[in-house]
Nucleic acid binder design. Structure first.
Lengths: 343, 343
DNA sequence: CTGAAAGCGCTTACAG
DNA sequence: CTGAAAGCGCTTACAG
């Protein structure tokens, strides 16, 4: 068990000062070639690597990005992490992940923990509970301390910062329009409760599409699901009570449940019932029939978010000399992936 | 933009020494009550929080756990992370995640990056390439430096450290036995290439079950898939050429592909073909028919791995006084989840 | 009861 | 060309 070697030890062994060792390893021209090479050889031999923590303290930056997301066991969020990781690594950053479990308290706790010096900036998507409460003081605080935050997907207008989103409303509109184009008249909507920002926006898109096509808008064809675990019952009720020939679901899970329930009832997808889901993932791909989805590239969102954050981080050299906060909101393209659940 | 307040600033404001502030905040009995309360009030007002990096440097421990896994967009690994996160958070640890992308070089790079002081210990699952090369020097090195490592799922006998695994062979045996019990005679195996440790073990279990039941072992009913993307072709060949009434697949993806291909060919699952897959996940649950699986709780594995690591971390007080390395290998229970793909 | 000093591992402006 | 000193933000053994 040979503990990691430090500058101090090298200095002692070689009988030079710590400064000399440090400078040699950083190839400072201040140091004579002979000494420099000697130190470098020695350091290489003992596999010296500078201690990240010491560097962080000295430089007052950690080269780490904090990610706070509601859930990790979720295809979309995993792909976002993937995307963030890629560009983080390319730029020499590592990634610290905390999960809020859709709980406000955990989100606050995790942010506070990471904000105390562990990371240089945040990339985050709001927990449901946070969106419900509308309490964003923990985020404001972090931003006020000068720590940049990039929000993605589940964002809020109440916070000024960089954001990366998709145009949920337009994408939903497009999906519903495609159902209409294929001759569907009575289109149901299975969505979340309104405080989930993206659910609300997708609902808006659905309504607008109907309106623009002069299709009567029927409240009874809309169901808002609070809890995924109980969605099966609600969905089977909907299928039993209402007659419709298409469904737009705001996520994969709702869609696959609809299809399974419809099948049990003897309805054929897509013949009797066309289904489109928001957010392409593993379920849609492997479901039978496979599901037509609105694809939002989590990877691209992650890439973009990381780029925005790192850019801001690296631009901070001038300190608060000029507080040039021109926050931007990037909108990532979506597109429809046609599969077997629609015709 | 009010930067985070430090002890130094508080000391200056209150006209006391930094030591006094530090001790007051840590409720040291050395400090007079008056001063102590004054400092605490002030600190609270300015929302003082100690800087993690400084603490890490001072204490020579970071209270962070490094996780290195091959892939995050993968149900099993996400659940493991979930499991690790839970117990990490309960114990005041945060979690730094790096992805190896199943690449040896990335695994080495990431380990080196994190090993330089950023974390206190590792939890990892080997990349495919690492298993293929059989090169584990990066892990040995980290362990030699005194940094504990816990491996899970994809482990190796070549490294001595704590491990958490499932009994892949026994679980596979049980799955195949259940197929035999339901009257299946010709059971195919769809597995990975042998260097993936778990794939190999599951294959062993399959063979043993056949042997014990005196079922002739047929090489032609075994296919080893290297690349998931091309598995569709290989699988459809198998289905066309060989006659069999059951398949044991070493993962969900293989299983769902088999089912979809069989369906296209007019075979009925489970009537014509029973299917069992290793590792329960989202695909098996939502596939049609839903798939009978061997469930290995990633969450439990994560819990256990984190517990083992943290225990070792907290036990390290005695330093190298007595090098009591009694490494253990925990075996997590598995069980069969019966669904529609078997009768 | 309070504070100066040393130290965690590093960097860098400044002397010599 | 080399090294002592100060400092990043904290803690703690030791003086006073």
């Amino acid at each position: 068990m040979k503990r990691k070697v430090t500058l101090k030890q090298i200095a002692k062994e070689l009988d030079v000062s710590i400064s000399t060792v440090s400078k040699s390893l950083r190839n400072s021209s201040e140091i004579g070639e002979e000494t420099r090479l000697k130190v470098q050889a020695f350091a290489k031999f003992y596999n010296y690597k500078p201690n990240n923590i010491a560097l962080s303290l000295k430089n007052r930056k950690t080269k780490s990005i904090g990610i706070i997301i509601p859930e990790i066991v979720h295809y979309f969020f995993s792909t976002v992490i993937n995307g963030i990781e890629q560009v983080a690594n390319e730029n020499g950053y590592s990634v610290v992940i905390c999960l809020s479990d859709d709980s406000f308290d955990k989100e606050v706790l995790n942010m506070e923990m990471l904000a105390n010096g562990s990371i240089d900036g945040f990339i985050m998507s709001l927990s449901k509970e946070t969106q419900f409460k509308g309490d964003f003081h923990h985020i404001t605080e972090v931003i006020n301390q000068g720590m940049p935050v990039v929000m993605f997907d589940r964002v809020t207008n109440d916070i000024l910062c960089d954001k990366v989103i998709i145009d949920d409303k337009a994408a939903a509109y497009e999906a519903v329009q495609s159902l209409i184009d294929s001759g569907r008249k009575k289109i149901a909507l299975v969505t979340t409760v309104d405080y989930v920002s993206v659910g609300k926006l997708r609902t808006d898109g659905y309504e607008k599409a109907l309106l623009d096509n002069e299709i009567p808008f029927n409240e009874e064809l809309i169901i808002k699901i609070e809890d995924v675990d109980t969605c099966e019952i609600t969905i089977s009720q909907l299928l039993h009570e209402r007659a419709f020939d298409a469904v737009f679901a705001v996520n994969e899970l709702f869609a696959v449940t609809i299809i399974k329930t419809a099948n049990k009832m003897g309805l054929k997808v897509p013949e009797d019932l066309a289904v489109i889901a928001f957010t392409d993932g593993i379920i849609s791909k492997y479901s039978t029939p496979s599901i037509t989805t609105v694809s939002q590239s989590g990877e691209k969102m992650g890439n973009k978010a990381a780029k925005m954050l790192i850019e801001r981080l690296e631009a901070e050299h001038d300190d608060d000399e000029e507080e040039n906060e021109n926050y931007t909101t990037e909108v990532i393209e979506t597109h429809l992936i046609k599969r077997e659940s629609t015709d």
